[in-house]
C-alpha cells in the first residue's frame, strides 16, 4: 500500500522550511511534524544570535564579566565540533566572529566603515574563549558567538530524528536549503532534491537521495550587493571582509550537520584550498565557482 504524502511548509530561523512525510497513518504524521517543528523552534530559541532571550545571548552578555557557564551535553558537543572545525580550517571557521558576521549581515545595502570593521575585529578570536568541557567562559568584553553554519543543519537532523523516533521511515526535512532525508519513499524510491542555482533562477541539479544529509553553502544567501559587487555573508575573520570563494558548495554526508560543516569550511577555505579539503574529506560534493564552473559530483 502506498503511503500518504504529507507536506508542511513553515518559516523558521529566517528561512522557508518544509517537512514532507509519507506514512499511512495521517495522525502519526501530523504528530511527527509537530515534534519536528518543536525541535527546530527549541534550537532556534536556544542558539539564535538574532534573539536576546536565547542561551547564546546569555553567554554573549556575560563576555568579559568572568562568568563561567557549565554547558549542557548538547551545547558542549556543539562547542567540541566548533573547536574541531576551527582547527581543521586553520582558524577560518570561528564561532567567536559574531561581531563581524553581525556587521556584514546588514539590512542596508552599504559597506560598513573601515573603523567599524576594525572595531569588530578587535572583538573576535578563539584565544578569548575559555572552553574546557563542560566549562565555558567568554574572556573578552564584546565577544559575540555565532553558531551559524551549524545550528540550522543540526536542527534539520534533530527534526528528522524526532520523526524517526515516532516511527516515520520515509520523509525529508528542509530548512532553507539544508536537507536531511530520513529514508526513501515507502515504495523504495529516493527523494529528488533540487539544489538551487547560485546565480540563475531555478535549480543547478536534481539529485536522488534515499537517506542522509545534503547541505549547501552559497554566497547568494543574505548577500550584500554594493556598486554591482557581491559581498557574501561568510566573512574571513582574519581580514574582516567577506570571502571571495565559491558561488556555492553542496556536500552530502550521513547527517546534515556533517554536510553543512564541510560545505561551510570549503566555502571559507576558498576555491583552491576548499577543493583540496573536499577531495581529502572524500564526501560527495558539487561546487560552483564565481565564473559558474561546476566541479565535483553528488
Amino acid at each position: 500500500m502506498s503511503g500518504l504524502l504529507i507536506r508542511h511548509q513553515f518559516r523558521a530561523m529566517g528561512c522557508p522550511c518544509s517537512i514532507q512525510l509519507e506514512h499511512p497513518d495521517a495522525r502519526l504524521a501530523d504528530a511527527a511534524i509537530a515534534a519536528a517543528i518543536g525541535q527546530v523552534e527549541r534550537l532556534d530559541r536556544k542558539y539564535s544570535h538574532y534573539r536576546d532571550d536565547s542561551l547564546l545571548a546569555d553567554w554573549c552578555a556575560s563576555a568579559g564579566s568572568g562568568r563561567v557557564f557549565e554547558l549542557d551535553a548538547e551545547s558542549a558537543a556543539l562547542f567540541d565540533l566548533a573547536a574541531l572545525l576551527h582547527a581543521q580550517s586553520g582558524g577560518l571557521f570561528d564561532i567567536t566572529a559574531g561581531a563581524l558576521t553581525r556587521l556584514w549581515d546588514r539590512p542596508q545595502q552599504t559597506l560598513p566603515e573601515p573603523t567599524e570593521i576594525d572595531a569588530a575585529r578587535a572583538c573576535i578570536g578563539w584565544q578569548h574563549l575559555s572552553w574546557q568541557r563542560p566549562l565555558l567562559r567568554l574572556a573578552l568584553a564584546g565577544l559575540r558567538l555565532d553558531l551559524g553554519g551549524l545550528v540550522k543543519e543540526y536542527a534539520a537532523d534533530r527534526a528528522a530524528q524526532a520523526c524517526i523516533e515516532l516511527g516515520i521511515a520515509a520523509g525529508v526535512v528542509e530548512l532553507g536549503g539544508d536537507v536531511r532525508v530520513m529514508g526513501p519513499h515507502l515504495d523504495g524510491s529516493p527523494w529528488r532534491i533540487g539544489i538551487r542555482h547560485p546565480r540563475a533562477a531555478g535549480t543547478l541539479a536534481r539529485i536522488d537521495v534515499r537517506e542522509g544529509g545534503l547541505a549547501t553553502s552559497g554566497d547568494y544567501e543574505r548577500a550584500l550587493i554594493v556598486d554591482g559587487r557581491r559581498y557574501s555573508h561568510i566573512v574571513d575573520p582574519r581580514s574582516g571582509w567577506p570571502i571571495q570563494s565559491y558561488a556555492s558548495v553542496s556536500v552530502r554526508a550521513a547527517s546534515c550537520l556533517a554536510a553543512g560543516a564541510a560545505a561551510t569550511l570549503a566555502m571559507l577555505l576558498g576555491v583552491q584550498a576548499g577543493t583540496g579539503y573536499l577531495r581529502e574529506l572524500g564526501l560527495p560534493h558539487l561546487t560552483v565557482d564565481l565564473d559558474g564552473v561546476v566541479g565535483g559530483e553528488l
Binding site: 548538547e74 558537543a77 556543539l78 574541531l84 550537520l257 560543516a261
Partner: peptide
C-alpha cells in the same frame, strides 16, 4: 568530522 557530529 563524523565523530564530532555523531556526538550530536
Amino acid at each position: 568530522l563524523l565523530a564530532a557530529t555523531a556526538a550530536l
